[in-house]
């Protein structure tokens, strides 16, 4: 029984067509013409309770629009949606009790108040019993090391401290589901790791279902077993991170550094990815070509100063998919 289920979810934004020129604004106001922008175009997915899924895609792919529909503040144009047995936009407040939300770019804390007072306000908003509140708050203070800034007004907190506060705020009422929208954006490596550790523990210890939207694929590699990849409003991949890596992992990259500039380097059996004269990157299928033979070929043709062989990481795989589109690669026999 999935905890989150969507079927053919679509969202089309309709806005009046802008008329340029003098009196354009007025004509825009009176115009009956509309521009339609399809933000989400038939997203079908289902999540089991306790899953931690990376929901990723380029800017404008429809990630945030999907999340907004899941939180119930945006009404879908068509399709079905159900979160913990509730249709979010039909029962906004009931849905709100089941979910927690963290936005990296927007705080839900109360700007003028000490951090701990925001927590107290949330206790009242969700009607959290005192014992549960105390237990959660104590646990979060320890996990997120919030001792020293608990009484500091939110506006004086550093970004890292504020994010930790936001995480605690989103989890105080023990939500079944948590949406994280770019939660590590702008954080330094230490703060990022602390946040990732927290997400992993919440998921493992409390069985919280988590949807993580991010552009930092290190977050995904560290945390998610499953990726839903969305582009132009469509789901282009839904499955294991490992499967994605294996499918694309048959490619290796050979990086050559030349002693003297080479204008158009060529290697038989490998595809040139990029070259700037001094270096060149070639991609090849490791099942068809042998690295040692390619290196020998290269050294016969050019004077090389350095050779490196790169394994594909998730980042380069995703980048390729964004640029070239997703073509289901044949599974590599093992």
């Amino acid at each position: 029984m999935p905890i989150i289920r969507t079927r053919d979810l679509r969202k089309v934004f309709r806005s009046p067509r802008r008329v340029p020129g003098a009196f354009g604004a007025l004509r825009t106001l009176l115009s009956r013409e509309y521009e339609e922008k399809i933000a989400v175009d038939g997203v079908t997915m289902s999540l089991e309770a306790g899953e931690l899924v990376g929901y990723i895609g380029p800017n404008g792919a429809g990630k945030s629009t999907t999340i907004k529909m899941l939180t119930g503040i945006l009404v879908p144009t068509s399709g079905e949606i159900e979160v913990a047995g509730v249709v979010p936009h039909e029962a906004r407040t009931e849905n709100a009790r089941n979910i927690g939300v963290v936005f990296g770019q927007r705080s839900q804390l109360y700007w003028d108040l000490p951090l701990v007072e925001s927590f107290e306000l949330l206790r009242a908003i969700y009607g959290i019993p005192q014992a549960q509140y105390r237990r959660n708050l104590d646990a979060f203070i320890e996990l997120l090391q919030m001792d020293e800034f608990l009484r500091t007004p939110v506006r004086q907190l550093s970004l890292g401290q504020r994010m930790r506060g936001d995480f605690a705020a989103a989890m105080l009422h023990d939500p079944k589901i948590v949406y994280l929208d770019e939660p590590t954006i702008g954080l330094d490596v230490v703060a990022k790791e602390a946040i990732r550790e927290f997400i992993a523990r919440i998921n493992a210890e409390r069985g919280t279902t988590i949807i993580l939207t991010t552009h930092d694929l290190a977050d995904v590699e560290r945390l998610c077993s499953r990726i839903v990849l969305i582009d132009h409003g469509h789901v282009v991949f839904d499955g294991d991170v490992e499967r994605l890596k294996n499918a694309y992992g048959k490619f290796r990259t050979l990086v050559l550094a030349f002693d003297e500039p080479v204008a158009h380097p060529v290697l038989d059996g490998a595809e040139l990815e990029e070259a700037d004269g001094a270096t060149a990157r070639f991609r090849f299928d490791r099942n068809r070509e042998r690295a040692d033979l390619l290196i020998r070929q290269a050294s016969e043709r050019y004077r090389l100063s350095d050779v490196t062989l790169e394994e594909p990481d998730l980042e380069s795989i995703i980048r390729r998919i964004y640029v070239e589109g997703y073509a289901q690669p044949e599974e590599t026999p093992r």
Partner: peptide
């Protein structure tokens, strides 16, 4: 600010 969205995500 756009923060009305955050309030609408609360049961209030």
């Amino acid at each position: 600010e756009g923060s009305i969205a955050t309030d609408l995500m609360k049961p209030i």
